[in-house]
Nucleic acid binder design. Structure first.
Lengths: 223, 223
DNA sequence: GACATACCTTGCATGCTATGCAAAGATGCA
DNA sequence: TGCATCTTTGCATAGCATGCAAGGTATGTC
């Protein structure tokens, strides 16, 4: 757990990680300074020290550089769900996996803060970010389903055997799907509510309150 | 309730609605036939009988034409939440508002089916669609909050007095926000689960089961 | 009905985004 | 070292997106 994304793999792979991270960071910093609309791919590439063509080897779209800060956060969360203690309920396992990921993001605090600032500044990017998060939830749903089937932690996080999207969706039951989607929603709602007034409450408290509300079945107005 | 989006307003407004609808429909049909990537703005515009420049007067982006079929569905849902009987709990009011909107979409059955087909064919568009739906949830959260404050149905759906996004988010409490987000999640999860195997269960049954699971607090595996 | 007003559409010019291709450079491995 | 593999890069090209100004179409007033 000490060195997750550090000296993993050979030189080639490390360089790729570095380049990707450099591009993403350059994009966010430039956007925070000048506004996302005024930042061209050329500027981002120059700041990261690569050619424009290389930028498009890493990102399909200019906006992706603003949206996808950490490309393999999804994989880490899936693994965390699978590795969680067997004693935890599905909802609890998800809560812990997400909390761990949020704690890790906290270490890149400044960058994530800029990211949030950039994304909230243009509705366009906000939509893309929300959508990207939701796409991750499909992976989480698979992990939850596997966990339930196995009755405990599982070994691998390798991509499912299903070939098409059709099959993959068909293989998922309603419950894991709903659980993953709701958990993702819980995170986003917590983040949004907290970031509206960061001084009013600790983020972790908001996060726990949201999960408590969910576990209670969203009872009518608590006022 | 009989003529919602029909002969509303003057000729000018009707023409704009018609043009927008024609563009959206042309986009979806062309994409369903040739694949979204192969459909140019020029083709869409030609099919709708307008110039390319006019296309961009209605949509900021080419992809928007594939994503936003019904531009003011969000406003209708907000109004429905505000107009719901005072006896309903917030969760119930949301459920009814969403169910009504889904029923209306059923009348454009073929178009929505094509839309789903197009969107699920390219992950890119799926992400955008998911994000767009989530953006609507902010409006729903406002409606829920207003409903709770008023203790019953309210009159207007006019935009809130808040100037900035910052203020608007600050004005929202945790509970309405969570409720709206979770309800939106419920709809998407229902649609996805049902559309994976449409023959296995009626959509409305899936929809109701999801809300039942939510109201029960997402208890551990029902198996 | 004629007029002024406001709005919508359109073509043109322009700059940026995005992809395929082939050559050159960097890495991994025997 | 030498070969195979992967990555980077420049170039060419097509499509996306916006500002601007000219012309056309509804709307309200006289």
């Amino acid at each position: 757990m000490s060195e997750k994304g550090a000296a993993q793999g050979g030189l080639r792979e490390r360089k790729k990680r570095a380049t990707r991270a450099a591009l993403a960071e350059a994009a966010v910093r430039l956007a925070a300074e000048h506004g996302a609309e005024k930042v061209t791919v050329e500027a981002i590439s120059a700041a990261a020290g690569v050619s424009v063509r290389t930028f498009f080897n890493y990102f399909d779209t200019r906006d992706d550089a603003f949206v996808v800060i950490d490309a393999d956060a999804g994989a880490r969360m899936r693994q965390a769900v699978l590795d969680a203690p067997a004693a935890l309920s599905p909802l609890q396992a998800l809560r812990e996996a997400l909390a761990a990921e949020l704690a890790e993001a906290e270490q890149q605090h400044e960058l994530w803060r800029l990211h949030a600032q950039v994304v909230h500044a243009s509705p366009h990017l906000l939509v893309r970010t929300l959508g990207a998060h939701m796409a991750d939830e499909t992976g989480l749903a698979e992990a939850v389903a596997a966990r339930i089937r196995a009755g405990g932690p599982t070994a691998s996080v390798s991509p499912p055997a299903c070939a098409t999207d059709e099959e993959r969706r068909g293989a998922l039951d309603l419950y894991p799907r709903l659980l993953a989607a709701v958990a993702g929603t819980a995170v986003r709602t917590s983040v949004e509510h907290w970031s509206a007034r960061p001084e009013e409450a600790a983020f972790l408290d908001v996060f726990q309150e949201v999960f408590a509300l969910l576990a209670a079945g969203l009872p009518a107005p608590p006022a």
